[in-house]
Simulated scan of single mutants.
Amino acid sequence: MPKRILQGTVVSDKNPKTVVVDVMRVFTHPVLKKTVRRSKKYHAHVEEGAYKVGEVVQIRECAPKSKLKRWEVIGVGAKG
């Protein structure tokens, strides 16, 4: 089964080997036909602390690494 890849903005880099990534998704409401924006925060594993707050990164699903971490950073995402 392919692993999901999401793109979001780093909102916290305070923990060692962990960044918190805020992923925004946009969809049309099924009844109201209005564009809705929802965001969710994911804890992602990163070996080196190379990512700072405000950077756009891509994260990929992985095997659980801790209680909260089920994602890993795979690189810098494209702006836009």
Rank of each mutant, 00 (worst) to 15 (best):
I59V: 06
E72F: 11
V56W: 02
G8E: 00
T35V: 07
K65H: 13
E48N: 08
T28W: 06
K69F: 05
K34S: 11
I74D: 00
V36L: 08
V20F: 11
V31D: 07
G54M: 01
V19E: 10
T9I: 13
C62Q: 04
M24K: 08
V20N: 03
R37D: 03
G75F: 14
S39E: 05
R60Y: 09
H29A: 10
K40C: 02
E72M: 09
G77Q: 07
H45M: 08
K17W: 12
L32V: 13
C62P: 00
V19N: 05
V46N: 01
H45E: 09
Q58A: 11
D13E: 14
T35W: 02
V73K: 01
R70D: 02
T28Y: 09
V36W: 00
V31K: 04
K17R: 14
T28D: 09
S12Q: 05
C62K: 04
V73T: 13
V21R: 02
L32C: 12
I59W: 01
K65F: 09
V23D: 04
G54R: 04
V76T: 15
H29W: 08
V53I: 09
C62G: 10
I74F: 00
D13K: 12
F27S: 09
M24V: 13
S66M: 10
R37G: 01
K67W: 11
H29P: 03
E61K: 02
E47A: 11
K33M: 06
R60E: 12
Y42S: 03
L32P: 03
A63D: 15
G77D: 15
W71E: 15
R38F: 04
R25S: 09
G75K: 14
H45P: 01
P30F: 12
H29T: 10
Q58G: 03
V46A: 01
W71R: 10
A44T: 10
H43Y: 10
V26T: 11
E48F: 05
L32G: 08
H29E: 04
V76M: 14
G54C: 05
V20H: 07
G54Y: 03
I59T: 05
Y51A: 08
S39N: 10
H45K: 02
S39M: 03
F27T: 09
V76F: 10
E55D: 05
K34D: 13
V23M: 01
K67S: 13
S12P: 00
G8R: 01
